[in-house]
Amino acid sequence: MVASLDLAALLGQAVIPAAVLGLAALGELLVERSGRINLGLEGMLHISYGAAAAVSIATGSMAVGFLAGLAAALLLAAIYFFTVEVLGVNQAVIGLSLVFLGSGVGVILGNLGGGAAGPALGITTARVVAAVLLVATTLGLYLFLQRSWVGYVVRSLGENEKAASMMGVDVRIVRAAMLALQAVLVAAAASLFLYGYTSGRWTAGRITGQGWLALGMVILGFWHPLGVAIASYLLGLLYSVQSLLPSLLPPGAVYAVLVDAAPYIAVIAAMAIASIIYRKTGHRPPASIWQA
């Protein structure tokens, strides 16, 4: 009985971290399905988290905070679009630069809040919001990508840009739209992290690693909305277990070092296993991802 109660608590605890990761990963999924990879996702989360915190603390409004986070994420998306799509700069250079730009500016913006606590969601409300957002976005993206003509256009662009262009697809418009949608999902993830996970209080670097892990979730979820959501939920579960590990390990244990590193080691191992499975089953990522 006790075990089942603990399990239920664990499953519930996993919802918010899973939704944060899942929303960010689903945004990246859209970009990768359209044939680009935005390594700047980590920076987008940082800047959105900092901007949402600064504005929500100043105004007392979560909605306005979300809009500020969205504006910040859109700014980085616009830089990515202009430099990569218009100028043709290498997407890895810009993506990595955006990581540093986003995390740097994110800290500057977050500091404007002065360490005060802003508005936040109650734990139950936050879990319900997180679950609804993750499920609705996953289903919405599944219907969009797998069952609509526009989604077909996006996927075809990710497979063969030239062919899609010859069929009349406006490559830039589609990619701009996917980047804008990514910004919306990133802002939702950052806001959920702020209002639901850190009780409205911004701390420098608290969101670190979420963007990178989200990039890993896209691979583990095999570029499919349902897969991405499942992978994110499993990692969310690991986060819940991770917070319990210190109480389970003897103090000073050598393997206590693994507590902090657990999600990263798990993702590396999972990516290695997934790669083997994908190779054996003949699956592969969208063909034009690394061509810019």
Binding site: I79, T83, L87, G88, V89, N90, V93, I94, S97, L98, V99, F100, L101, S103, G104, V105, G106, V107, I108, N111, A204
Partner: peptide
């Protein structure tokens, strides 16, 4: 904040790389 240095460095890389392109 120390992170200002990171932001400045990233801005410079984006502008220089874009200008060279």
């Amino acid at each position: 904040p120390w992170s200002f240095a990171l932001a400045v460095q990233a801005i410079i890389v984006v502008f220089v790389v874009s200008a060279v392109t």
